[in-house]
């Protein structure tokens, strides 16, 4: 039982990272009906930018970084990646808004390959290591379950960001505009909504959340590689499908469920098959219930 609970705690940590990244996929899909294959790379670039910021500031070498310093790392990484997201949308997706469905897929894959190789050329192919002392190594025992400070940070930051996004989308006028665009671009335009601005906004929010996830993964696992964009990206995408693509609470739920299932699977079945779990789940969901757990609206799209 204790081991089971420990796995669930571990799973929730990983799952909240998937949720954050999944939000980017689901929002872009909701508005543009586009699988943004480059979104995983946003996460990866966020992680690398955090690493660079940490080493420039000389944080974590002797003592753990201050709260302000860590916030600065988050801020720099999220802002820069949001800019990158807008840039990718402008260059690779906007000219294809009216093209066939094949063209944006290829363009997105191209953007993904480009970013991955750009990072590889800049940072090299080897694993890059974060300083270990960045976050103080505190942990608590609750009923025999070990909970480290970093896990708490990941979970709390993710939940806060998700709550902020949820409020933005559901309670504000801007959120109403986003939801209107997801339903119908042309009608939204008739209602006086600047659709291009909303699309840009989505490409700010999604990548910024992805970057935050990337920063936390770097601080948690200590080492990053240029392929993490793909490995985390595909899982986050599975999470988005699992919850119902285009559905924001669905992406959050999907991420947490996927994280827990994956950790349990790795613990109780075999770690070698861990990577396959998300794919099995993905295929199963698409065959049995393509709308996902919380999705309804996209039914006619399948």
């Amino acid at each position: 039982m204790q081991e089971f609970l420990q796995q669930v705690v571990n799973g929730l940590t990983v799952g909240s990272v998937y949720s954050l990244v999944a939000l980017g996929y689901t929002m872009v899909y909701g508005i543009l009906r586009l699988i943004n294959f480059a979104h995983g790379e946003m996460f990866m670039v966020g992680s690398y930018l955090a690493l660079s910021t940490v080493s420039v500031l000389g944080m974590g070498q002797v003592a753990s970084g201050s709260l302000g310093g860590i916030l600065l790392v988050f801020l720099i990484s999220m802002t820069a990646v949001a800019g990158l997201g807008v840039l990718v949308e402008r260059v690779a997706y906007r000219p294809l808004r009216r093209a066939s469905r094949l063209a944006p897929i290829v363009s997105a894959l191209g953007a993904s390959i480009f970013l991955q190789n750009a990072i590889m050329l800049i940072y090299g192919t080897r694993f890059k290591v974060f300083p270990e002392k960045l976050i103080p190594q505190i942990s608590w025992e609750v009923g025999g379950v070990k909970i480290t400070l970093m896990r708490v940070v990941i979970l709390v930051v993710s939940l806060l960001l998700m709550a902020a996004l949820y409020t933005l989308v559901q309670k504000t006028q801007l959120g109403a505009a986003i939801r209107a665009c997801a339903l119908d671009h042309d009608t939204a335009r008739l209602m006086g909504i600047d659709v291009d601005r909303i699309v840009s906004l989505v490409f700010i929010i999604g990548p910024a959340l992805g970057a935050a996830a990337g920063v936390m993964v770097g601080m948690f696992y200590y080492q990053i590689n240029f392929v993490i964009g793909w490995t985390y990206g595909i899982r986050a995408f599975t999470a988005a499908i699992l919850g119902g693509i285009g559905n924001i609470p669905g992406a959050m739920l999907g991420g947490l469920i996927l994280g827990v299932l994956e950790t349990l699977g790795a613990g109780y079945i075999s770690p070698g098959w861990k990577d396959a779990i998300s794919f099995f789940l993905l295929i199963l969901i698409l065959i049995v219930r393509p709308t996902g757990i919380l999705g309804e609206r996209v039914a006619e799209k399948v």
Partner: peptide, 14 residues
């Protein structure tokens, strides 16, 4: 090479 390739994929589609 792959960097150019990725950029070429985008340019071709546009």
């Amino acid at each position: 090479r792959m960097l150019v390739f990725g950029a070429a994929m985008i340019a071709m589609m546009i």
